[in-house]
Design a protein around this nucleic acid. Sequence first.
DNA 1: CAATAAATATGACATCAATCATATAAAATG
DNA 2: CATTTTATATGATTGATGTCATATTTATTG
Lengths: 198, 198
Amino acid sequence: MMIDINTLLAWGAAYKKVSAGEIIFKEGTCSSFYFQLVSGLVRWVNTNEDGKEFIQTIVEPGDSFGEMPMFDDEPFAASAIANEHSVIIRLHKSSFLQLLKETPELHFAFTRLLSQRLRFKFILLKELANHNPEQSISSLLNYFKQTQKNISIGCNQVKLTRQQIADMTGMRVETVIRTMRNMHTSGSLKINKGKVYC
Amino acid sequence: MMIDINTLLAWGAAYKKVSAGEIIFKEGTCSSFYFQLVSGLVRWVNTNEDGKEFIQTIVEPGDSFGEMPMFDDEPFAASAIANEHSVIIRLHKSSFLQLLKETPELHFAFTRLLSQRLRFKFILLKELANHNPEQSISSLLNYFKQTQKNISIGCNQVKLTRQQIADMTGMRVETVIRTMRNMHTSGSLKINKGKVYC
DNA sequence: CAATAAATATGACATCAATCATATAAAATG
DNA sequence: CATTTTATATGATTGATGTCATATTTATTG
């Protein structure tokens, strides 16, 4: 949980319901709100000319998203689209910044968040530049396992489809499927009835 | 310029000279200092098993580097190596954090910096995932032009070698050279005596 | 639980960038 | 300014991943 919901509400935040497939904000447009996911699932993606999506992040309940423009005053770097019926809460930019000013420890929580996100991008870029499907997937899953993101905690079941992994790494579904099958064979992960455990 | 040198010195920072090729800090090791480049040139890189380098950032005078561990308490995400004889200034982590606490506007300057860095990674990842050499290079140069990084301001000469561009995108030198030749032919950039203008 | 949809699986083939080799041009050095 | 080093250039070949087609398994829905 990034910012406490009651705090957000006290500062004038409002809930908003979005249905599956609904675009919450669009890449390149200007931003006036800080967003946080209350329930549901949101993908944070770039769409290229051919309509192919690159998934920057899968936003889970409690996660903040679209916060970059709050800090650097640039447009959204990617679009946020609801994967399923979701509830979001949003706070106006001016209130958000004022809240940070008055709550230094919250400000530090955000520098920590930005830093962690940046770190993830460092790792991913390094891996993708290597052009080794198995290593890229392995590194991605390992990161999710460590941060308990996109993983069912307890059984370590990967909550991502092969397509989503492909869309996060710039590979094709077939390549991801084939690579993960090989990884299953070599023992570096387990596939049971199509479901992946790591 | 990230933090004013006099401020850094007042807070107990110390200069350090490093010679060409010297490793300032190593990926994976723990960090106790905030770093800023005074003069020279530093590359911020990941080295893979084969010794191939992926350049995360080319650090220019005035830039801060290795600041992520200050905020998220994780090890260095990449190594910093001096490209040439350089002078750096470093401030102890505890002093750095205290300085931020006492100077909220500086703290906001850092969230802005982190946000801008994250934004750059978003863009680069999106492009690299597209697997289109010309678009990747074009997007990279465009970003450098906008932010006036790695570009001689005025004449717009790219200060990066083809090898460096290759090392920032995960492509091979030959591919970068061939692609940029094509871009010269198609008019999207200009090459004169090997030097690139955009 | 039958029917439909979505995800995974797998083969065949094509393609673009990697690799390797070598040449030439530009920059650095004594 | 001659020599060495570094960067750019370009051809030939290879190989991994993309593409396309189709089958099968798993999940979803009425």
